[in-house]
Design a protein around this nucleic acid. Structure first.
Lengths: 160, 160
DNA sequence: GCAAGATGATTCAAATTCAGACCATTTAGA
DNA sequence: TCTAAATGGTCTGAATTTGAATCATCTTGC
């Protein structure tokens, strides 16, 4: 047990050593892992991580397409940022936009065959990086617990 | 290496459900927590997260100052990005640059009193967000394990 | 049926980030 | 000592991101 705490952990209190360590590790790991991911995707397919995420979400969507705003929510980017990214992906021929019949405000973003192919090209390397940087460094128990804990963290924040 | 492999987790193989879950949670939690952090710092002190990190590192450095490149390494930011950020912070009066006597290539970035004050202003809110979004959502055991596991992940990547 | 407000998406200018070129030291080696 | 390579920082132009404003289309309540 660490030093005995005599008062309640009120919001705003300094973090305790263990908490601070977890926070700093969380930050650093996030930074570093993302940096590796970004590097690999750029090198193997000229994609940014966000663009990759867009393609991934589209691939697993029904009919390989999603409305812009749903896509933005999935990938967790702002609408204006998504507009830009999809424009880039469209320019590359990986995504195609089309109007939505039932709601003429919305726009479908649909994965093209070229987009699917691009995804296939980078995916093996992507998986390798995910393994090498994160998964293979953790024990099965840690993977389990990390999944539980961070899912809870994410779920909390989504419901805001 | 045999080419006969059918189920071994060779690099490049699809992630298993548990692994995928951990990976997605890691990504999502990182995104969402950082978003909250960014929001609070911007609102309470007009600082970006990276700028805040710069001030934090400087505060705990001897004489409240660091050389630009050491600072960049600490904050895990590219040199050119740090140059920009420090220029902004200097403009705001939170940091002061000065030449280094022993190595005339280097530049000291030093935290000013105004910078320290700015830090004091945003810190309580910052801690609150760290608690609310991450720490308070985890059990002590999870905090412990998260710290261990992600420190290992980060350490691995630093040594590249 | 219709005005007020919500929603979906894009646009614009300003701010930030990136990668690489560049300049001035410093360091190492022959 | 001289020179080539390494290091520390900045600068530049292009790319990206941000946040607010805008536009068009739904939705709601009356």
């Amino acid at each position: 047990m660490p030093t005995r705490i005599t008062h309640v952990n009120d919001a705003g209190d300094a973090l305790e050593p263990h908490e601070l360590r977890a926070w700093m590790a969380f930050l650093a790991a996030g930074h570093l892992v993302d940096h590796e991911i970004e590097r690999q995707l750029k090198r193997d397919g000229g994609l940014s991580h966000a663009e990759f995420e867009v393609l991934v979400k589209l691939r697993s969507a029904p009919e390989r397409r999603l409305r812009m705003s749903d896509l933005a929510r999935e990938v967790m980017v702002s609408k204006s940022r998504l507009t830009y990214q999809v424009t880039q992906l469209e320019r590359a021929g990986f995504v195609k936009r089309s109007g939505c019949a039932t709601d003429r405000r919305s726009v479908w973003a649909e994965l093209t065959d070229d987009g699917a192919a691009a995804l296939d090209r980078v995916r093996p390397g992507h998986r390798r990086v995910v393994r090498e940087t994160l998964i293979d460094v953790l024990t099965p128990a840690e993977i389990e617990l990390l999944g539980d804990a961070l899912s809870r963290v994410a779920d909390r924040l989504r419901g805001r």
